[in-house]
Structures are given as structure tokens and as C-alpha cells.
């Protein structure tokens, strides 16, 4: 029976060294008026701090525009941080030279959201998988063939000979996403960043891909950053969850604690908005906040969720940015409701 079990809380990786440390990361995009005058900044990431340990999966949940993908791209080095630092295996990324960047990038794999858009339509499967190796100096033909065989076996694109000459449009959505994963794995990375890897796929295929990623993680002891808007898949996949809103991480928790009791009103709203398949849903209305996420050019003063929050404390939430409060062990919320927990 092909199936995907709920991820059990593993031994706390506290003694382990973090593979990735992100400290007070800011990524701002400058907006120009008439192409010349500075009109302001879009603060896509505004002070994000976290550690990621070896072999651990962290989910980042949030809606579009909250900065999840900017975070991924900043870690990948596609966007340059405005402020703050990223350390990969204790190496500060800002000090890397060209070769250093190349080595760094070859040790992280990136899985994009839309598999078809991520694969070059004019390249065969074989060329798609050879390309990263050529760029990163693996020129030995036998080694190339060995790695291609290994990753295709791992992502279960079999029989391998049938797939090698195919082009992306000849593959189904699930197969395309497997190929994207294979490409991310070909340089034997230590960390994967998966940006909504299953949101474009059907329910049954989704489970298949998540199971595949879970298997790869256990086999290679990968650290994974799993970015998603779908709270219901995270429990099958990750040890910790970060919830993002308005370019900040507002809640950090172990998966089991968060699913038992979400603390931040925004995470609670996400929770409420997720529909489990249940005929009872027809009878009740959902209690979700109206309105839109804030503009990141002009974020609201104080807590960024306060204009939509039903539990707002007047004079506090709309004036001061909430710091992170340690509410329980392994459960942190940036919300004034928990100001008594220090």
C-alpha cells in the first residue's frame, strides 16, 4: 500500500550544528518613480532570524506576498540581502568569492513551484540533468552517467532509458516535478529549498511527491526548507513550522505544538480557513478576518496584522512591533497577547 505516514517528532536536533543560520535578514527592493527618483522600498523581508539543522525539515507557511519566496531566493543568493547575514556551515555568504558561491550553490538544491515552467522545453531529460554537472565541473562521462542513473532511480522515473531522450512536454505533471527534484539532487546537495513543490499537482500525485521528498531526506540526511501555503500538508513533512505574515516570521513552533494550538491570531485564521473534507462544513460559516495583507512599501505601524486582528489590544498592537515571546518550550509567537510570557 503506497502511503505517507504522519511525521513523528524526532529527537531534538539541539546538540547538532545548524547547517544554515539566518540572522536579522532584510531584503528590500527599491521602487523608482519615473525610472530615476527613489519612491520607497518594498520590504519583502524585514528582519528574519532562524536556524536550520542537518537533516531537519522546516515548513514556512503564509499567503502570497508575505515574503516566503523572497526568503528562499535570498538564501539561494538570487536576491542580495539589504541587511543581515546568512551563514551556511558557519561561512558567511557575504564573504564568498565567485568560486565560493559556486560551491555553495552546488550544495543546495532548489525545487520550483511550477515544474513545467522550471524545465527548459528544448532540452531532453538527459541534457537537463547533465547541465548542472557541466557547470560544476563534473566532466567525467561515466560519473555523469552514474549520477543520472542514481537520481532517476531515486525519483522513480523508470525505465530510465525511456525517459532520457524525452522532452518535458512529453511528461505528466507528476513526472515533471520528479525530474525537477532529480535535477535538484544531481549535485548531491546538503540542503533543499522546495518552494510550493506540490501546489500545482492533483491530490494523489501530491502525496506521491511528498513521500518521495521524505524518502530522499531520510536517505541523504538533507535539510529541507518547505515553503507552502497549505497547512494541511506540513504535518506529513516537517518537524518545525514558521508562520510568516507581512515579511516577518510571526510564529515559530514544533509542528505538533502548532497543530495542537496555534498561538498567533493570524496562524489561527489560517487554521480556521483550511477546510478538511467534511460534510459538516456546509452548515457553518468560517470565522476569518476580512481585508488584505498589508502593503510592504508602507507597512502598518506596530504589529502588521493589527488592522485585521480581532484580538487587538488598542494602544499597544497598533503602536509597537511585538517582539518574540517564548510561550511554551519550542513555541514562539510575535504577538502582544503573550506579553506575560518571558
Amino acid at each position: 500500500m503506497p502511503s505517507l505516514a504522519v511525521k513523528l517528532p524526532q529527537e531534538q536536533p539541539k546538540e547538532q550544528k545548524p547547517i544554515l543560520r539566518v540572522e536579522n535578514l532584510h531584503t528590500w527592493f527599491e521602487v523608482r518613480r519615473m525610472g530615476f527618483f527613489k519612491a520607497g522600498d518594498v520590504r519583502a523581508l524585514d528582519g528574519v532570524t532562524f536556524d536550520l539543522y542537518e537533516g531537519e525539515t522546516v515548513s514556512i507557511v503564509g499567503e502570497s506576498g508575505c515574503g516566503k519566496s523572497t526568503l528562499a531566493k535570498t538564501i539561494l543568493g538570487i536576491n542580495i540581502p539589504t541587511k543581515g547575514a546568512i551563514y551556511f556551515e558557519d561561512q558567511d555568504l557575504s564573504t564568498l568569492d565567485k568560486q565560493g558561491w559556486r560551491n555553495y550553490r552546488s550544495s543546495i538544491g532548489y525545487i520550483q513551484q511550477d515544474p513545467y515552467g522550471a524545465l527548459p522545453p528544448f532540452m531532453s531529460v538527459q541534457r537537463i540533468l547533465e547541465e548542472p554537472m557541466k557547470i560544476n565541473g563534473i566532466r567525467n562521462k561515466e560519473e555523469q552517467a552514474r549520477r543520472i542513473r542514481q537520481v532517476l532511480e531515486e525519483v522513480k522515473l523508470a525505465p530510465i532509458e525511456d525517459f532520457l531522450p524525452k522532452f518535458p512536454h512529453m511528461l505528466s505533471g507528476g513526472q515533471q516535478q520528479r525530474l525537477v527534484i532529480a535535477r535538484a539532487m544531481i549535485l548531491e546537495p546538503k540542503m533543499l529549498i522546495a518552494d510550493e513543490p506540490v501546489s500545482m499537482l492533483d491530490a494523489s500525485v501530491r502525496v506521491e511527491i511528498l513521500q518521495l521528498l521524505q524518502g530522499l531526506q531520510t536517505k541523504h540526511n538533507l535539510a529541507i526548507i518547505y515553503i507552502t501555503h497549505d497547512l494541511s500538508t506540513v504535518r506529513y513533512f516537517s518537524e518545525r513550522i514558521f508562520s510568516m505574515y507581512g515579511a516577518k516570521i510571526i510564529e515559530k513552533s514544533s509542528t505538533s505544538a502548532l497543530l495542537k494550538e496555534p498561538l498567533h491570531p493570524y496562524t489561527q485564521a489560517l487554521f480556521e480557513a483550511t477546510s478538511d473534507p467534511d460534510a459538516e462544513n456546509l452548515k457553518t460559516f468560517k470565522n476569518v478576518p476580512a481585508g488584505e495583507p498589508p502593503s510592504l512599501m508602507n507597512p502598518p505601524k506596530g504589529c502588521r496584522f493589527h488592522p485585521r486582528c480581532s484580538q487587538i489590544i488598542k494602544g499597544l498592537c497598533d503602536e509597537h512591533i511585538p517582539p518574540e515571546f517564548q510561550v511554551h518550550e519550542e513555541h514562539i509567537a510575535a504577538c502582544w497577547l503573550y506579553k506575560d510570557h518571558q
Binding site: P2, S3, L4, V6, A203, R206, V207, E208, D276, P277
Partner: peptide, 22 residues
């Protein structure tokens, strides 16, 4: 039945299944 078994749920623990093939 298989389709229902492949839908992840937030509020209860269940083992997800998928349907092999296309």
C-alpha cells in the same frame, strides 16, 4: 475512496495514500 484517502487533513492524523499510475 482512494481520492478521499489522498486528501491531507489538518485536524486529524491519517495516513495518506496515493493511487499509483495515471
Amino acid at each position: 475512496q482512494k481520492l478521499m484517502a489522498s486528501v491531507p487533513t489538518l485536524r486529524e492524523d491519517k495516513e495518506l495514500q496515493f493511487i499509483p499510475g495515471q
